[in-house]
């Protein structure tokens, strides 16, 4: 406890240096490295956003792709069909998925455990199919997809996602060390007991769900602007749910920095494996998932905390 303020200063210094470096990247790095960093930062937001809700409340969200796809669609359509400026289209997409998530959360968060996970998959799959039908084609362009050019430079895109990733980690840090975060953890530990102790569990769950939707949605909007394209199978692919979960699991579920570390490592692994073994890459990914659950369920940071390498506090 005594040296915690010293620790904090050290961590603060480290973070400031890292930020200064990251902000200056566009001035010296090649497009290849910037692209790689953009992906790392996008997945940092995805993994942290998933962790913010699922890691703290214990409700496994298997529909992260729904947040990403809905916001990605709204912002892409605004840019492509309505000539919105990207900086305006992104928050509208994220706000849209955030607001819809209030209703979705209110309805689906009554369902517990595995059934909640399945209902989120069903929601994602249902939306994916629906966006490809002829009924929504006038709005969504159906299965043909939406190609578009946002007219944003790589540097501007990089700085935007850097800012978002930074904000997301700060939000996660603030929440895990707040009473709100404790209430979410109480829900994870024993929801009924939490409710008889006066915690409005439904409200807390919805707030966390919506916050997670907004942050991942914002990253999703940036993601599809970066790709210049979205279609139903691309926007709602199960990989957009799966990859962030693996990253969060690897780094440590319920930790602040774990998902960011997981995102960084896995994006690199992806880059290397993808180049070498394109098809087998996904198989290896599946294998890693199995091994993680069997041998490493507490994640990297959890493992280090157990070993005493890191202090057993929530703020890491």
């Amino acid at each position: 406890m005594k040296n915690s303020s010293g620790d904090r200063n050290l961590i603060g210094l480290g973070i400031s240096l890292l930020m200064a470096f990251l902000v200056s990247v566009p001035f010296f790095a090649s497009d290849y490295w910037m692209t790689l960093l953009v992906l790392i930062l996008i997945y940092t937001v995805y993994a942290s956003g998933w962790n913010l809700f699922s890691g703290l409340t214990g409700y496994t969200n298997f529909g992260l792709a729904w947040f990403i796809g809905v916001s990605g669609y709204v912002s892409s359509l605004l840019i492509a069909d309505h000539k919105f400026f990207w900086l305006l289209a992104w928050p509208i997409g994220a706000l849209f998925v955030g607001i819809v998530s209030i209703g979705v959360g209110y309805i689906l968060l009554r369902i517990k455990g595995v059934y909640f996970a399945i209902s989120m998959v069903a929601l994602t799959e249902g939306t994916r199919e629906l966006f490809g039908t002829e009924y929504l084609e006038p709005i969504t362009h159906g299965g043909k997809g939406v190609p578009f050019v946002a007219g944003i430079s790589l540097s501007a895109l990089y700085w935007s996602i850097l800012l978002l990733a930074f904000m997301t980690v700060i939000v996660c840090y603030k929440i895990t060390s707040s009473k709100f975060g404790l209430r979410l953890m109480a829900i994870r530990e024993d929801e009924q007991a939490a409710e008889t102790l006066g915690i409005h569990t439904t409200r807390e769950k919805i707030i966390a769900f919506v916050l997670s939707a907004f942050l991942t949605g914002l990253a999703g909007a940036i993601h599809f602007t970066y790709q210049n394209y979205i279609d139903p199978s691309f926007g709602f692919t199960i990989h957009l749910t799966l990859t962030p979960i693996v990253m969060a699991l690897f780094g440590g579920v319920g930790t602040v920095f774990g998902p960011a570390i997981g995102a960084t490592l896995f994006t690199f692994i992806h880059e290397i494996l993808w180049a070498e073994l394109t098809i087998l890459y996904m198989a290896i990914f599946g294998g890693i998932l199995i091994l993680l659950i069997l041998f490493f369920p507490q994640g990297l940071l959890g493992w280090m905390k157990e070993r005493g390498v890191l202090p057993r506090i929530r703020k890491i």
């Binding site: 455990g113 098809i279 990914f285 369920p297």
Partner: peptide, 24 residues
């Protein structure tokens, strides 16, 4: 004895492993 959700994630991994191997 693990939480129900561990099995969910593990078999998810198994699913990806199997169909990608089949594809390979």
């Amino acid at each position: 004895k693990a939480p129900e959700l561990s099995a969910l994630i593990l078999t998810f991994g198994m699913s990806i492993l199997i169909w990608n191997l089949a594809q390979f």
